[in-house]
Amino acid sequence: MLPNITTIAGIIFLAVLIVFVLNNTRKRGMDAFSLGLLITSVALMVMIVLPEVSKQFTETIGFARQEFAFLSIVALTALFFSIKNFFKARALESSITVLARKTALEKEKK
């Protein structure tokens, strides 16, 4: 049986998403968030294209429903995203402070 138009649109969207994620992961050296995003995209694709296989797999690894497994991956990815941004923001704050300090010391010299 051929998949309907929504499924095809979904597959195309996911394919674009995976290309985008792959590009980013390569640039970022495969950090936890990018990896989570990649796994989320693949899991979603498998759920759409091969629902029976994904159902069987999630049951084997101990989830009652495949949606629960998917939501767990999404939650983990969101967690990695938050942690990553927290450290990014902190690093940015530190650079701003260093810049402010440098400016203050150089201005005083003049």
Partner: peptide
């Protein structure tokens, strides 16, 4: 001797400056 941070960075940052 007055040093001026262009933006507020906090008392810790100012002390280190």
């Amino acid at each position: 001797i007055v040093l001026h941070h262009p933006i507020n960075r906090g008392v810790g940052a100012a002390t280190v400056t």
